[in-house]
């Protein structure tokens, strides 16, 4: 089959035009994301004197500090995700069941913290959670506790701060997915004999699985690189990988080691991202053929 050369010329021109539209964004993303990553990758493979080596990786992988920080990172991310699931799913369900007016108002309240600087919010938690803070003062004034609870400068404190930051970002996609479910489908389940919990388990959760997976991915992947919150609320005792990187730089001036740790974090993010996509696919398959 022959094609009129005029048509293929038009098509080429069209493609070039749309490539031109995308070009500025591609250039900026390329320069500001890919180049630094490549630079860090290069840095991680060089000695201080500039010779090629795997020594940086050998060093960090043989260090207990790296593995413990990796453990802390995963523990923080999965705990944050677990709490977001426990608190966020019922919240999103309640919002999706409420009238649109009420839900919109509640969403503004939920989003409000995101408009405040993370530093301000983190120090806000410090005021609330420290030994003489509002929470402990209130609890002891009411006679619930004799000793102040260790709520901050530890894992709990970092977890509270991170959950507070991530919960809105988790609720949004879950709420959107639940809001999208046809009300008649839920009513149909009820008319067929499903009580509230059965309805949630067999219809609402499977149909909002996409939103839950998106929210979970955001929470888990985002928290892998958290720095300020664990740094302030962890009180130096909670050291995820981001804090390790900062220490490596500020204390040891070790750019190569920090770069290798950075690549490790990037790898972790990629693995987590792929795992979530895979889980989502599998869950989708299983539900369809249940």
């Amino acid at each position: 089959m022959t094609v009129d050369p005029g048509f293929s010329r038009d098509r080429r021109r069209e493609r070039l035009f749309f490539l031109g539209l995308a070009a500025p964004a591609i250039v900026i993303v390329g320069l500001s994301a890919a180049v630094p990553v490549l630079w860090i990758l290069r840095q991680s493979l060089l000695t201080i004197s500039g010779e090629a080596t795997f020594g940086n990786y050998q060093k960090i992988l043989s260090s207990d500090l790296t593995w413990s920080s990796l453990g802390v990172t995963l523990a923080l991310s999965s705990s944050t995700l677990a709490i977001c699931l426990v608190l966020g799913l019922p919240l999103a369900l309640a919002l999706a069941s409420a009238s649109r007016r009420v839900a919109n108002f509640a969403l503004i309240l939920i989003m409000l913290p995101l408009w405040t600087s993370i530093l301000v919010r983190t120090y806000g938690w410090l005021v609330l959670l420290r030994r003489g803070g509002l929470v402990n003062a209130t609890l002891s004034a009411l006679g619930f506790i004799d000793q102040p609870l260790p709520l901050v400068y530890n894992f709990t404190g970092a977890l509270i701060g991170m959950t507070h930051y991530m919960l809105p970002l988790f609720v949004l996609p879950v709420y959107a997915a639940m809001r999208d479910i046809d009300g008649n489908v839920v009513r149909a389940a009820a008319s067929l004999g499903a009580g509230f919990w059965r309805c949630v388990a067999t219809v609402i959760l499977p149909l909002s699985a996409g939103g839950i997976a998106s929210g979970s991915t955001i929470v888990f992947v985002y928290t892998l690189g958290f720095f300020i919150t664990p740094a302030v609320l962890g009180g130096g005792k909670v050291n995820p990988i981001a804090i390790r990187i900062e220490r490596t730089l500020s204390t040891f001036q070790d750019w190569s080691g920090a770069s290798a740790l950075g690549m490790l974090l990037l790898l972790l993010v990629l693995i987590a991202g792929c795992a979530f996509v895979a889980i989502r696919r599998l869950a989708g398959e299983r539900v369809r053929h249940a």
Binding site: N184, A189, P206, R288
Partner: peptide
Amino acid sequence: VVFQNYALFPHMS
């Protein structure tokens, strides 16, 4: 109950 838009469960066979 039979609904106007069928209201079938899209995630099930």
